[in-house]
Amino acid sequence: MRALSVITALLVASGVLAGCSDAPASQDAAGARAPAGPVTMVVPFAAGGGSDIAGRAVADGLVSVTPGLSVNVDNREGGQGAVGYSYLLGKAGSPNYLLATETSLLSLPASVEVAFSHRSFTPVVKLGDDYTLLVARPDSPITSCADAVAQARTRRVLAAISGAMGPDAVVFSQIRATTGADLDTVPYEGGGESMAAVLGGQVELASLNPSEVIGQLRAGELKALCVFAEQRYTYPELADIPTSLEQGVDVAFAQFRGVIAPGGLHPQAEQYWVEAARRFVDSPAYRDYVASEFLQARPAFGPEFGAYLAHAQGEVEQVVSR
Rank of each mutant, 00 (worst) to 15 (best):
278 R>D: 05
138 P>S: 10
233 Y>K: 03
197 A>P: 08
195 M>F: 08
189 E>Q: 15
296 Q>E: 15
216 Q>K: 14
240 D>Q: 14
214 I>W: 10
286 Y>P: 04
109 P>D: 09
126 K>R: 15
168 D>T: 01
231 Q>P: 08
241 I>A: 03
133 L>Y: 00
144 S>C: 07
260 I>T: 13
46 A>F: 03
291 A>N: 14
187 P>R: 02
183 L>Y: 02
224 A>L: 01
258 G>L: 00
85 Y>S: 02
39 V>R: 09
249 V>C: 00
140 S>G: 12
288 D>N: 15
273 W>C: 12
309 L>V: 11
151 Q>W: 04
285 A>H: 13
235 Y>A: 14
135 V>G: 03
87 Y>L: 14
162 S>L: 08
298 R>V: 10
61 G>K: 04
193 E>L: 12
250 D>W: 01
169 A>W: 07
21 S>D: 14
246 E>P: 01
223 K>Y: 11
3 A>F: 07
228 F>E: 02
61 G>L: 01
24 P>K: 06
33 R>G: 09
293 E>W: 02
214 I>A: 11
69 L>A: 14
72 N>Y: 11
29 A>F: 11
272 Y>Q: 06
54 A>C: 11
25 A>C: 09
234 T>H: 13
285 A>M: 06
271 Q>M: 08
311 H>C: 05
102 E>T: 14
320 V>H: 11
49 G>A: 04
298 R>M: 04
139 D>W: 09
27 Q>H: 12
176 R>W: 03
225 L>D: 00
190 G>R: 00
320 V>I: 11
120 S>A: 10
284 P>A: 06
233 Y>R: 04
223 K>F: 09
320 V>C: 05
208 L>G: 00
47 A>G: 14
109 P>F: 06
57 A>I: 00
267 P>G: 10
109 P>C: 10
143 T>I: 11
131 Y>H: 11
51 S>E: 10
127 L>P: 05
66 T>Y: 08
245 L>V: 11
81 G>I: 04
131 Y>W: 11
36 A>M: 10
188 Y>I: 01
272 Y>N: 08
25 A>W: 07
104 S>D: 12
308 Y>R: 13
189 E>P: 10
104 S>F: 06
89 L>K: 13
69 L>V: 15
309 L>I: 12
245 L>Q: 13
289 Y>V: 02
85 Y>V: 00
146 A>T: 08
71 V>Q: 12
158 L>A: 12
146 A>M: 04
81 G>Q: 06
278 R>K: 15
318 Q>E: 05
16 V>F: 13
183 L>Q: 04
8 T>A: 08
81 G>F: 02
65 V>D: 07
47 A>T: 15
100 A>P: 06
139 D>S: 14
9 A>Y: 14
131 Y>T: 03
206 A>W: 02
187 P>L: 01
280 F>T: 12
317 E>M: 10
203 V>Q: 00
185 T>Q: 07
170 V>A: 04
202 Q>M: 07
233 Y>E: 03
112 V>W: 06
6 V>H: 13
266 H>F: 08
59 A>I: 12
183 L>C: 04
58 V>F: 03
14 S>E: 14
116 F>Q: 11
135 V>W: 04
212 E>V: 09
147 D>G: 15
251 V>G: 02
232 R>S: 01
